[in-house]
Design a protein around this nucleic acid. Structure first.
Lengths: 143, 143
DNA sequence: ATAATAAAAGAATAGTTGGTCTTTTATTCT
DNA sequence: AGAATAAAAGACCAACTATTCTTTTATTAT
């Protein structure tokens, strides 16, 4: 469905959103260790998210990663877009390039319902929404 | 979502179901060329499907691949299972190993709805169903 | 029997994803 | 200024997916 990298990115961003603050930045090592993600790979992913402005980074002592106010309103889809691209949510279930509602493959309509559900989930839920839910309920990010 | 290989397998099986018969077997080359799939790779995939008894094969002149009566009643999910395995439809949206309804990740419930829709689509629709639809409507498998 | 046909088997290659390591650059604290 | 800290950049390696090629085996028609 989504790549490993993208799932790591989800968890890292949500972890940052819940545990970090502009005044309380987290470095890649601590994030990776908390989430049980390979340390150098986590670093790469955080860099990529920072470059695409999903999260913010700062170098030097007390530096690290954190979210700006405006980042909290980003939908999860922005993370998917930054890491995997949006193809998954546009592609035909059979991998046909010219599949569409006018020229559908045998499973087009039914497949589209499920795929669109997932798509709108990622499009609708923002980092802020999830962060709230994590704080209220006993949701978790490690495992 | 599903691998390239699995999508190739879908198209090959459905093509065989529509165009082939026990008395009118199709070889891997003609299937691959009709569907615009790399010839030797198509061969490999058909072999794998035959070994897992999704399709039937026979060697020698007038040999090739075809479907037995019983194969038509297989759900598409059997093809997914044979090629990609069933993990996609059980995995957590964030890639957590211990995510479940009792111990859910932040997107668990919503993700499950979409994932289960796709899962039941593949579980419900059989090769026979799709074959019928292909014959009635102007569905297609190439592109 | 022999030739022809077609799948089966398996080794080999290419490209992508996943993951690691090293060096450089920027920042901050003393 | 100098030491320490942490991200940025980029080269590197491993594993897997996609793809190709070669050889072997089984079947059938002549």
């Amino acid at each position: 469905m989504l790549s490993n990298k993208c799932k790591y990115a989800f968890r890292a961003v949500l972890y940052l959103a819940v545990e970090g603050h502009e005044k309380d930045r987290l470095n890649s090592i601590s994030i990776a260790e908390s989430l049980n993600i390979p340390v150098p790979y986590m670093g790469k992913i955080l860099q990529e998210l920072a470059k695409k402005r999903i999260i913010t980074s700062s170098k030097g002592p007390n530096g690290g990663f954190y979210l700006r106010e405006e980042n909290y309103s980003l939908p999860l889809m922005k993370i998917v877009e930054a890491i995997d691209g949006l193809d998954v949510f546009n592609q035909c279930g059979l991998g046909l390039t010219s599949c569409s509602s006018e020229h559908p493959c045998p499973i087009h309509d039914d497949f589209k319902v499920g795929r669109d559900h997932l798509s709108s989930l990622f499009q609708t839920k923002t980092i802020a929404h999830i962060t709230e839910e994590i704080k209220i309920k006993d949701y978790f990010l490690v495992g």
